[in-house]
Design a protein around this nucleic acid. Structure first.
Lengths: 127, 127
DNA sequence: CGGGATCCGTTCCGATACTG
DNA sequence: CAGTATCGGAACGGATCCCG
């Protein structure tokens, strides 16, 4: 388990060279987790994804999907219809991650009120 | 549970107005999760945090801590020593989130090899 | 020690236009 | 339908200087 030279020790998770941090850095953007969450239950086509993940531009969607595909989390399948159809889906690896994403979403759902309350209080004090 | 007007339904997690997305947007930056992970076990002072979370600048650390404090995830305690001492720590709310963060870190630790392999393969094909 | 203020390059990102 | 290419503004983020 610890034979990989680049793998960080537990006490060194914060080092820049730590691969865990590399993964975290890659996923900690505005859209990646959201897109993966949308793909959790079914394959989705490009423009459908664009409509469902509200607010994302087509450029950024394209870029993000490419990164997720490169990381082995998402597959891109082209169907030779006219016009062409492209389906994006989670890989097996992607599915293992989506469980964690869901727990993050659940935390947010359950604690949004506390967060909003804290923000209001903070803003009231720091007027 | 669903009485809050701004809370999204399960089928609408991707809407911009969804509070779950607001929380996700806030945490999905380069440093927030990393800082919270460092605070998991003990309160940490500003410059110690700066040293431990490798690569973060003092400006960005300061900004990120302020946001985390505003969200009610982190507390800031000032001690009137000379020179002044400031300790950052997780709130109770912050601790409930840190469990999820840890599972994300564990996923990364366990699957980094698969991700790196996928990247190499992708780069080889798209030369 | 724990920041704030400023400057400045880079990256991000949205809008628009175009293509197979 | 599923993208790519280009442009320009906005936001991010690092380096430096300064202060209580």
């Amino acid at each position: 388990m610890m034979e990989t030279a680049t793998r960080c020790q537990a006490y060194n998770v914060f080092s820049q060279a730590c691969p865990t941090r590399m993964v975290l850095d890659r996923l900690a953007d505005k859209w990646s987790l959201l897109i993966m969450d949308r793909l959790r239950d079914e394959p989705v086509r490009f423009n459908q994804l664009r409509r469902d993940v509200e607010g994302i531009s087509q450029k950024v969607l394209s870029q993000t999907l490419k990164k997720l595909e490169r990381d082995g989390l998402v597959t891109r399948q082209v169907f030779a219809t006219v016009p062409v159809t492209v389906e994006y889906a989670l890989t097996a690896l992607g599915h293992t991650l989506s469980n964690t994403i869901e727990s993050l979403a659940h935390w947010a759902e359950h604690n949004i009120d506390s967060v909003l309350a804290a923000q209001r209080e903070y803003d009231a004090v720091n007027a």
